[in-house]
Design a protein around this nucleic acid. Structure first.
Length: 203
DNA sequence: GGCCAGGACACCA
DNA sequence: TGGTGTCATGGC
């Protein structure tokens, strides 16, 4: 239904693999608009690559990414990720790669899965705030379940395909951003009927 | 002026 | 395991 409404998203907003990884870290609990400025700043200063970030000092990175908030913490995290990815070898073994990525300080499940799916085309499902919000509103989940539980639910009910996971999550974000931010039943929402049914069902 | 955004981690009980 | 504080900017 969302696909019919919005069409293919060809998502994540980022030109290169490195830019996708950088965006995944910078967007932690942050509006994407603020991230865009930080990325533009990094680009202007020749730091939009993991190699360059791994070599740069944390203070300078922090100055350049100030606009996206939490800049001191994110500068360290960015450098941790850059150092890890520029040295890690076997990136085709999804499970091992994911576990190794999760050990990097600053990389939680959502960030790891965003990197795996959007930068490395590996079959994982990304569960973010939009996913929890929209599907709890639809009555499909409570929203408080552990990350892996929700992720598994989507993986088991969708065809196992990187393209599908990518597109499905992208549509969730698109929908969450445009229409379903605060109001539980916005008038023009394409999922309005489904939301209403779910709410009635709960009563 | 307050609330929130595409989280993660340290610390505590 | 679960709850809470912290990190911080910019848009609405």
């Amino acid at each position: 239904m969302l696909y019919k409404e919005y069409g293919p998203q060809h998502w994540w907003p980022g030109e290169t693999q490195d830019e996708i990884v950088i965006g995944a870290v910078l967007t932690q609990n942050t509006a994407w608009k603020n991230v865009e400025r930080a990325i533009a700043n990094l680009s202007k200063n020749g730091l939009l690559s993991l190699d360059a970030i791994a070599r740069e000092d944390v203070e300078r990175i922090a100055r350049l990414i100030q606009s996206c908030g939490y800049y001191n913490i994110k500068a360290k995290r960015l450098k941790n990720v850059a150092e890890f990815l520029t040295s890690y070898k076997d990136k085709r073994n999804c499970e091992q790669f994911r576990n190794a990525l999760l050990k990097v300080n600053g990389v939680g499940k959502e960030t790891a899965d965003s990197i795996l799916l959007y930068a490395f085309d590996l079959p994982v499902f990304v569960v973010d705030a939009y996913t929890r919000r929209i599907f709890s509103r639809l009555g499909i989940i409570k929203g408080t379940e552990p990350y892996d539980e929700i992720s598994k639910m989507f993986i088991s009910s969708l065809p196992k395909s990187v393209r599908v996971y990518n597109e499905y999550h992208a549509l969730i974000v698109r929908h969450g951003k445009e229409r379903c931010r605060k109001r539980p039943l916005c008038s023009e929402c394409v999922l309005r009927d489904k939301c209403q049914n779910a709410l009635q069902h709960q009563r």
